[in-house]
Structures are given as C-alpha cells and as structure tokens.
Amino acid sequence: DEIHIHFNGVTIEFRGLTEEAKKALEEAIKRGASEEELKELARRLIK
C-alpha cells in the first residue's frame, strides 16, 4: 500500500501507511502544508 503526493511538480512517495496516516497527510495537504512539513509528518507517521 503506497501513496503518491504530487506537490509543486515533485512526487513524494510513501509506502506502508495506515489509513489514519493517509488521512493525516491528506488533511495536511488540504490546509496547505509545505513539502518539508509533509515529509516530517510522514516520518512521524511511519515510525
């Protein structure tokens, strides 16, 4: 299970995320999180 985020022309790929983690990332994107914020969020979620 993986998710691809297209962000300002950059694709960020995450693997092994739970549904909750995906929802958290989607919410962050909707509120306009920066690419760095998304990566940091993903790091926290994957652990």
Rank of each mutant, 00 (worst) to 15 (best):
L38V: 11
A24S: 09
F14N: 01
A28Y: 11
E2N: 12
I12M: 04
K23G: 07
K22P: 01
K23N: 10
A33R: 02
K47S: 15
E26D: 09
E35K: 06
I3M: 10
F14V: 08
K30H: 09
R31L: 10
L38F: 13
I12H: 03
K22I: 13
K39T: 13
F7Y: 08
G32Y: 05
S34L: 05
L45N: 01
V10N: 08
L25R: 00
L38W: 07
R44A: 09
R15K: 12
A28S: 04
H4L: 08
G32L: 03
L38E: 00
R44Y: 12
K47N: 14
H6L: 06
R44P: 00
I46S: 09
R44D: 04
A28W: 13
R44N: 05
E13P: 03
E19T: 11
G9L: 01
V10M: 12
E40W: 13
N8Y: 02
R43K: 06
A24I: 14
L38P: 00
A42I: 15
I5E: 01
E35F: 14
L45F: 14
I29V: 08
E26F: 15
S34M: 04
G16W: 10
I3P: 06
K39R: 13
I46R: 06
V10W: 02
K39G: 05
L41D: 00
A28V: 05
L25F: 11
L25G: 00
E40A: 13
N8P: 04
K30C: 05
I46L: 14
K47E: 15
A24E: 14
E27N: 10
E20V: 08
R15Q: 11
K30G: 09
D1S: 13
F7K: 02
E37R: 03
H6E: 08
G9I: 02
L17C: 04
G32R: 02
L41V: 02
I29C: 04
E27L: 14
V10G: 07
E40T: 09
K22G: 03
F14L: 12
K39P: 00
K47L: 15
A24W: 08
E2K: 13
E13R: 15
V10H: 11
E27S: 11
V10E: 07
I46G: 05
I29K: 04
E35N: 05
T18V: 04
E20Q: 08
A24L: 14
E27M: 14
A24M: 13
A24H: 09
E13Q: 11
L38I: 12
A28T: 03
G9F: 02
K47G: 15
T11D: 06
T11R: 13
I29N: 02
L41I: 06
L25Y: 02
A42W: 15
K47V: 15
E27A: 11
R31H: 08
A42D: 00
H4V: 09
N8K: 04
R31G: 09
E26M: 13
R43E: 08
E40V: 10
I29M: 11
E19N: 09
L38S: 00
K39Q: 11
G9N: 05
I3K: 03
E27H: 11
K30R: 11
A21W: 12
N8A: 07
L38Q: 00
V10R: 07
R15M: 07
G32Q: 02
K39H: 09
L17Q: 02
L45R: 00
A42M: 14
V10Y: 05
T18C: 09
G16F: 12
E37K: 03
I5R: 01
R15F: 13
I3Q: 06
E19C: 10
T18P: 12
G32P: 02
E2P: 13
E27K: 07
F7D: 01
R15T: 11
I29Q: 04
E13H: 15
E37V: 06
E2R: 13
I29W: 15
E36Y: 11
E2I: 15
K22A: 07
A42C: 04
E36S: 08
E26V: 12
K22D: 01
G9A: 01
L38N: 00
G32K: 03
E13I: 15
I29H: 06
E20N: 07
E35Q: 08
I12C: 03
E2A: 14
L25S: 00
L25A: 01
L17A: 05
N8F: 06
G9C: 04
E20C: 07
A42E: 01
S34P: 04
I3E: 05
E26N: 09
A42V: 14
E35D: 08
E20K: 08
I46H: 06
R15P: 13
E36L: 07
I46F: 13
A21L: 05
K22S: 04
R43L: 14
A21R: 01
L45H: 03
I3R: 05
E27W: 15
L38D: 00
K22R: 11
L25E: 00
E19P: 12
E37M: 07
E13V: 15
K47M: 15
K47I: 15
A21P: 00
I12R: 00
A28I: 07
T18L: 03
E36T: 10
I29F: 13
L45C: 05
L41Y: 04
E37N: 03
L25W: 11
T11Q: 06
K39V: 14
E37L: 04
D1V: 14
K23D: 07
L41N: 00
L25H: 00
E40Q: 09
H6F: 08
A28F: 10
E36G: 07
E20D: 09
K30Y: 14
F14W: 06
A21H: 13
A24F: 11
I12E: 02
L38T: 01
T18H: 06
T11M: 07
H4I: 13
H6Y: 04
I3G: 08
T11C: 13
D1N: 12
K47W: 15
E13T: 15
K39C: 13
E19K: 11
R31T: 07
R44F: 12
K30M: 12
L41E: 00
K23I: 11
R43A: 09
E27G: 07
L45W: 13
R44I: 09
H4A: 03
E35L: 15
E2G: 11
R43G: 02
K30W: 15
G9S: 03
E2H: 14
E36K: 08
E13G: 04
S34W: 03
H6P: 01
I12Y: 07
E40F: 12
R44T: 09
F7R: 03
F14D: 01
H6M: 07
L17K: 01
G32M: 04
V10I: 12
I12D: 02
K23Y: 14
R43H: 06
K47R: 11
E27I: 09
I12N: 01
F14Y: 06
K39I: 15
E26P: 00
T11A: 04
T18D: 10
V10P: 02
G32N: 05
E37S: 05
T18K: 07
L41F: 07
E27Q: 11
T18Y: 03
N8R: 04
V10A: 06
E35C: 07
T18N: 10
G32E: 03
K23T: 11
A42T: 03
R31P: 00
F14A: 04
L25K: 00
K23F: 13
E35W: 14
E26K: 10
L17S: 01
I29Y: 15
A42Q: 02
K23W: 14
A21Q: 08
A24V: 14
F7A: 03
E35S: 09
A33Q: 02
L17Y: 03
R43Q: 05
N8V: 03
E2C: 14
A21Y: 05
F7G: 01
I5D: 01
D1Y: 14
A42G: 02
I3N: 05
R15N: 08
R15V: 10
I29E: 01
E20S: 09
L17E: 01
N8H: 08
A33P: 02
F14S: 02
E26L: 14
G32I: 02
R44K: 08
E19H: 13
S34A: 05
K47T: 14
A28M: 10
A28H: 04
F7C: 08
L45S: 01
K22E: 04
E20R: 11
E13C: 14
K23V: 11
R15S: 12
E36H: 10
D1F: 15
A33K: 02
I12L: 06
A21M: 13
R15H: 11
E37A: 05
A28R: 02
G32A: 03
K47P: 11
F7S: 03
I29L: 09
A28N: 01
L25I: 10
I5T: 02
E20I: 08
E36Q: 10
E27P: 00
K22C: 04
E2Y: 14
L17V: 06
S34H: 04
F14H: 02
A42H: 06
E27C: 10
I3Y: 15
A42F: 15
F14C: 05
K30L: 11
S34Y: 02
E37C: 04
G16H: 12
E27T: 11
A28D: 00
T11K: 09
H6T: 08
E19D: 09
L17N: 01
F7N: 02
A33M: 11
L41G: 00
R15G: 07
I5Y: 07
R15Y: 14
R31W: 14
E35A: 14
G16N: 11
S34E: 04
I5Q: 01
I46N: 13
R15I: 10
G16S: 07
R31F: 12
E27D: 12
T11E: 05
A28P: 00
F14P: 00
I12Q: 01
K23E: 09
L38C: 02
E13Y: 15
T11F: 09
R43P: 00
I5C: 08
R43Y: 14
K30T: 10
E27Y: 15
G9E: 03
L45K: 00
T11I: 13
A33E: 02
N8M: 06
T11H: 07
E36N: 08
H6V: 12
E40K: 07
D1L: 14
H4Q: 05
L17P: 01
R31S: 10
K23A: 12
E19V: 12
T11W: 12
V10S: 07
A33T: 07
G16E: 09
A42R: 02
A33Y: 10
